[in-house]
Nucleic acid binder design. Structure first.
Lengths: 261, 261
DNA sequence: CGTTGTGTTGAGCCGAATCAACCCCGGTGG
DNA sequence: CCACCGGGGTTGATTCGGCTCAACACAACG
């Protein structure tokens, strides 16, 4: 019994939230203590559960402390687009406290746990926690950047590039949250989820992952991903135009810029 | 000379901004007058000109009063993704006054004209113009909704669906701005721009538009688009699953939801 | 008048989707 | 204990949507 209590306290994993905020802005020790004290009103969700329903008004602002969630929309014919993955340390409904119903849903991809962010948010708005306030607005910018990155993937990149790019994003975000290192991180996603995020079919995600494994760029084993050659992946993802073919063709600038051309 | 002055005053086209704000929130007459008085510090841009550069810090908050612009990112190999189109009545850098450099650029697609939104924004933040404040935050939500709509297009829809969906979005937005009616609106875009927005090749945009014309769903003539059958387009765009084939297959729910299944 | 940008059209190819099995593994219940 | 089952992953065969390449038409413009 003591063991259970000890594990509940010692293992209380709000660390990702603290690490994320610290990565976004300088946070005082007092502010950090405030964030660490957010154990009140914890909530747990089972995989598949809906935290925020499409078209329903939003809930309280929360931090995700453990597990993975997705922001998504489902079309009337069943197709699904995942807009972004929500990882430990990320916030939910903190930046924009939109009362109106959201044009998206948030669903738990794994079992997960959230805490009420209200006290921290209030302190941030009061001016009592300026570091947290700065971190929150930086988080909003970061979220928008990730969204646009994802849009570039969907609109411009091949399956191969998309997967490489996406894995790099996850590595970076998880490392900030203190999960995983510069190469290895947990990846508790089915290929179907990857497919719906990347706008590909399940089968094609499978083949693309296999190609990356065959080329010894990544390794996937039981929910853990290892980026064997992050630099090579990065070259692929940003499409550094290393393809020799492209150097010979005029490369069709595909820009507007009639002036600078 | 009097004619020139008269045209400058009478034709001063800030109407789209007023209409847009009114569509987002109830705005008092005093607030409307404030917005109408924003003629100071007008700026004009030529097609192709960059209003905000990728990686450079942002400019003052502005309203776009005439012409079309695009928010975009260009990849190192020349590929370009247009994230959103900015139409008359839309704001630039109003919602989020991010000092940090943006991970995107804003370029003029046509000749365009902006006004300084600073006075209106200040009044909104002061509490002197609560209607404008509400409109601005509603505009931010609307912008995010459009971004997610666009992401669904890129990730899940076919070329045919994407074009139909996109044309409907433009019609709706332009009608709110007071340009065009429920069927007809100006469309000063090249097929290359459409291609870069929709993640398609120029050639395929061309063929898709032709199919829509052949089926008498739309008409395009000299920069004007006409939606001949908006309802049919809407059915296509939202993929109402009218394909008889899909009714017979189990439709592969493609959802998580192990519980509800 | 050439030139340049935009739209159009055809031929051929390729990346990715679809369809259909099959495997593996962890339940779960007879 | 084993048979069954379902979810996830893997694989091959085939189809198809969209891309590439290439040429040409047309209009605006200097």
């Amino acid at each position: 019994m003591t063991a259970r209590i000890a594990s509940r306290l010692a293992g209380w994993p709000i660390e990702p939230v603290v690490r994320r905020l610290r990565s976004l802005a300088t946070v005082s020790d007092g502010e950090e203590a405030l964030v660490r004290s957010l154990a009140d009103r914890r909530e747990r969700y089972a995989p598949g559960e809906e935290l925020i329903g499409e078209g329903r008004a939003q809930r309280l602002p929360r931090f995700l402390v453990a597990g993975w969630a997705a922001r998504q929309r489902v079309l009337p014919d069943g197709r699904r687009q995942i807009f972004s993955l929500i990882l430990p340390g990320d916030s939910l409904g903190v930046a924009s406290r939109n009362a109106p119903p959201a044009p998206w849903a948030i669903v738990a991809l794994t079992a997960l746990e959230t805490v009420d962010a209200e006290p921290a948010l209030e302190a941030a708005l009061d001016g009592r926690a300026p570091g947290v306030a700065r971190a929150i607005s930086a988080a909003a910018l970061d979220e928008e950047r990730l969204l646009l990155d994802h849009m570039v993937r969907l609109g411009q990149q091949t399956a191969y590039e998309r997967v490489a790019h996406f894995l790099l994003e996850l590595q970076r975000r998880l490392q900030i949250a203190g999960l995983g290192d510069s190469q290895r991180f947990p990846l508790p996603l089915t290929q179907e989820i990857l497919a719906d995020a990347l706008g590909l079919s399940i089968v094609h995600v499978n083949r693309t992952l296999q190609q990356l494994r065959r080329e010894r760029l990544i390794e996937l084993r039981s929910g853990v991903a290892i980026l064997l050659q992050p630099q090579a992946l990065s070259d692929i993802a940003n499409c550094e135009a290393e393809t020799p073919l492209r150097r010979f063709s005029p490369a069709r600038p595909r820009q507007l810029e009639s002036r600078s051309a």
